[in-house]
């Protein structure tokens, strides 16, 4: 595929993609890759240094940090992906409708989004989780609820922009159905931008879930989650500050990888972008 060809030329994109894929695969095969049970405590070996059997050492309860990191992928990363996918699906659907149909339906959706967006998203997440109680499901729902309206507005303005292109006018004159125009013409055009927003936002979602767990509102102990691990490490920061390193770096790496990938995707999905020919167009 042409997109893949262009992506292959971007070293940073390949690296980011590689990192994300290896993290995801590691998470899937966690039971086979983690050296120990992430929940197994062994007070006798708490705060152990890095060793062959415990590559990243142990935490304050003697649990293997590496194993907790690996199992933590399942909670942190997978949850974020699920959240993103759901948010995008809802946001894009409403955005396409609001942008293309306009009229009362469009305006209605838009005003509702404006209403939702008038709440600061962090507060909203906290409020929802506060109301529904802590737990993974509620965290996901809170994240979706706070972000879908933003996507709807973004997609709507993109759709408005593209709707004015002459090829959409031609499609209308030629009598194609609205659904066809939305799916075949508008959706591919905005897909690129949506993917970029999504990858950039994935970082934000990961940070959010981690932050909630850090505050004790998301994932509950003893489930391993990177934010949770940061939280636990924070409590004993004075004794063992190095315990914050592993989960902190893990979050940093995956968020950075997502951001770089998003940047590169934006360039490659533009059919006009050709790194060699750039400048010939004049």
């Amino acid at each position: 595929m042409q997109v893949w060809q262009k992506l292959k030329q971007d070293k940073m994109a390949l690296l980011s993609l590689g990192i994300i894929i290896s993290i995801v695969v590691t998470g899937i095969f966690a039971p086979f890759l983690a050296p120990h049970d992430p929940l197994a405590t062994n007070i006798k070996i708490k705060f152990a240094e890095a060793s062959l059997s415990y590559p990243f050492g142990t935490d304050q309860l003697g649990r293997c940090i590496l194993s907790r990191l690996i199992y933590g992928i399942r909670t942190t990363v997978f949850l974020s992906i699920v959240t993103m996918l759901l948010t995008i699906t809802i946001g894009v659907s409403f955005g396409l409708i609001a942008g293309y149909l306009r009229g009362i339906v469009g305006e209605g959706i838009l005003r509702f989004c404006d209403l939702l967006l008038s709440f600061p998203s962090e507060i909203m997440i906290l409020a929802i989780v506060g109301m529904l109680g802590p737990g993974i499901g509620n965290v996901v729902m809170a994240n979706i609820a706070s972000k879908w309206a933003w996507y709807t507005r973004m997609i709507r303005s993109l759709v408005l922009e593209y709707s004015d292109e002459n090829y959409i006018h031609f499609a209308k004159v030629a009598g194609y159905s609205n659904l066809y125009i939305l799916c075949k013409h508008l959706f591919p055009a905005i897909l690129g931008k949506v993917l970029v927003l999504a990858t950039l936002d994935t970082g934000w979602v990961i940070l959010n879930i981690s932050a909630l767990s850090f505050l004790g509102l998301g994932v509950q102990a003893p489930t391993p989650e990177w934010g949770m691990m940061l939280n636990e490490a924070k409590n004993i920061m004075t004794i063992r500050p190095s315990l914050m390193l592993a989960p902190g770096l893990a979050i940093l790496i995956i968020v950075a990888a997502c951001n770089f990938l998003g940047d590169s995707l934006r360039d490659t999905l533009d059919p006009k972008h050709n790194p060699i020919k750039a400048g010939m167009k004049l």
Partner: peptide, 19 residues
């Protein structure tokens, strides 16, 4: 009468879907 009326616009750069 779908397809019996057609149009050619001035701005050909946006008249065809770039994808």
């Amino acid at each position: 009468h779908r397809g019996e009326m057609s149009v050619v616009f001035q701005d050909y750069t946006t008249s065809i879907n770039p994808f």
